[in-house]
Design a protein around this nucleic acid. Structure first.
Lengths: 343, 343
DNA sequence: CTGTTAGCGCATTCAT
DNA sequence: ATGAATGCGCTAACAG
């Protein structure tokens, strides 16, 4: 450890024989003192090892932190495991980094925002937090909040038209009223297991993106003269290979065997295609599969996946920009169909 | 916005007709006042909408923040794009989350730690920052620092035995002194392009994990009676498909065509195998490929990749634990060979 | 252009 | 068990 003094504004001012306000001004308000004096002070500080006002104290005083909390729906692990979430974060950081704003990660499964609320200028909230209690807290805070993929009354938000996107992609997979459809859904019910949905799920259907997607599938099926049977809808608790494979095996083992698989994420669809391969089911001849998200791996997979791309990075950028500009309105991101070989 | 008052310790104390110290004690030092009084105060606060002392002020006072800065080697984008970095982060967060410590993301390409140093209890620094100037700053700060994959004098650190791991995996690929070897290296030189290395690179070879890996390859080759030719070593600036494909195409187009490809990351190796497939080169018959990292996708790829797994999540956990326990020593993580079909 | 002062919201003595 | 006073390090208003 170099033998360095822990300078403060006050002590350094004393050392330099000027008042603390002068030092403060030298760093923060160049117009308040002569150019020469300013440079003189700044150089002296640098020489002595004082690198500017303590940011914590400065923030306490100003009420401005240059930190925004990025609230993830679940534990932080989730974020870095899911490619869609990752690109969202990439978008957010690319905007904030430019502005010198730092990102504090916050888990949506936390009990309270108390631990961090006093350190940040506001929240960018990616997806409905697993802990619903947090939503109330966001409603009641007077810090800025931008929500993504869900809404809080009178807050800025960024959304994808999930119902329409699901409708569009389902249309690519459905061909006739003879089709046998199975749906591999993501977090349709609040249970941590892979299972069939059976009963109409009871969580608020309009606010959950999964239920919006389900509605889109439903509309597409209705158009084709088909109906959703709830014993052919699976709930998958997390978008990963483990849970998805279980659901896919179940779905592909029932009679009559489905020839259309509507999957609420690409990771789910890819797992399903792997299982189908293992079971020697030909894609797309015997089974048509569509995903949701448009991740890189889906393009590279053989056969490539037909899916609907939601530009997550764009979503992140927009959310960050809305945060910076104090937006209050709701915005929508366009989606785009990616036609592959899987249907 | 609910019409809520912005309570402070002082104002709430006044409201309740007690001194501010009493309220402070009620929240922080239960032993300083009677159980009944404490509960009475806490409940009154909760009812009025005061959720405890302002954390920013509290931290300024105590000098403790419950925030650790996670320093990424490059821009934040890098972190979320790279699966190895992601699992590292997963490990870190799994430990810190339990302790109620929050994570502030910090880009290693930043100029100064000034903007955040006053908000955090310390740094976990994942990989040598792109901006070398930061290293000096870490040396000089009196906050805690844990480095990963590199060292700063007298600081806690977590490392993988890169040289040995590279040696081990190269041994799986090398068969005879007739082998034609090409190396697809990661960030061997400080240039943002895909190119051959040619001259002995001049950055500090011992501190860079890439050069440690190169040394490992070299030792394995020497054992087999082979020599590295620098015109057969490529520099890839970032571990992604774009740069890697370019390098792979170059490497597979030279005469005599390499029959062994040593790749410094799995993403590079996978890209190389894709290129080889496009060029109708049979793996492993005509080309043996090994990677580095042991990511999920490498197992699933056909043919599956032979690689060496460094348990990144474990690395993250260890780094976080060392941070929490004020460790000062250097620790090593074991690696593990994963034998696939690619050689 | 410079210096003095009063807080930002809190924790911690030291009295009582 | 409790209350008054001091300062963590800083900024902004004001006076000179």
């Amino acid at each position: 450890m170099t033998n360095k003094k822990n300078w403060t504004l006050k002590s350094i001012a004393q050392e330099l024989g000027v008042s603390n306000a002068t030092v403060s001004n030298a760093f923060n308000r160049p117009d308040q003192l002569s150019e020469t004096k300013r440079i003189e002070i700044l150089e002296a500080c640098s020489k002595l090892g004082y690198f500017g006002p303590n940011k914590a104290a400065q923030s306490l005083r100003k009420g401005k932190f240059n930190i925004v909390a990025l609230v993830l729906p679940d534990s932080l692990e989730y974020m870095v495991t899911d490619p869609v979430a990752s690109s969202f974060m990439k978008g957010v950081s690319s905007i904030l980094e430019k502005q010198g704003i730092n990102i504090l990660l916050f888990s949506g499964s936390s009990e309270h925002i108390n631990n961090i609320v006093d350190f940040v200028d506001g929240f960018i909230c990616y997806g409905q937090p697993r802990n619903y209690g947090l939503i109330e807290q966001f409603k009641n805070t007077n810090k800025k909040v931008v929500t993504v993929d869900f809404d809080i009354e009178r807050n800025a938000s960024v959304n994808v038209r999930n119902e329409q996107a699901a409708y569009d992609v389902a249309n690519l997979a459905l061909r006739s009223e003879e089709d046998e459809v199975a749906i591999l859904g993501l977090r349709l019910i609040d249970a941590n297991v892979t299972c069939r949905v059976y009963d109409q799920p009871d969580i608020d259907t309009s606010s959950s993106i999964s239920h919006q997607r389900l509605s889109g599938y439903q509309r597409a099926m209705t158009d084709k003269g088909l109906n959703i049977h709830h014993d052919r809808v699976w709930n998958i608790p997390e978008s990963n290979a483990h849970y998805a494979s279980i659901a896919a095996r179940e779905a592909l083992s029932i009679q009559p065997r489905p020839n259309v698989l509507l999957c609420m994420s690409d990771l789910i669809a890819l797992s399903a295609m792997r299982e189908a391969k293992n079971m020697n089911i030909a894609i797309p001849e015997e089974l048509r599969v569509v995903g949701f998200d448009g991740i890189e791996e889906a393009k590279r997979f053989i056969p490539s996946l037909t899916t609907v791309h939601q530009n997550s990075e764009q979503k992140g950028k927009l959310a960050a920009e809305m945060f910076m500009s104090d937006s209050k309105h709701g915005a929508y991101i366009e989606h785009e169909l990616l036609v592959g070989e899987s249907c």
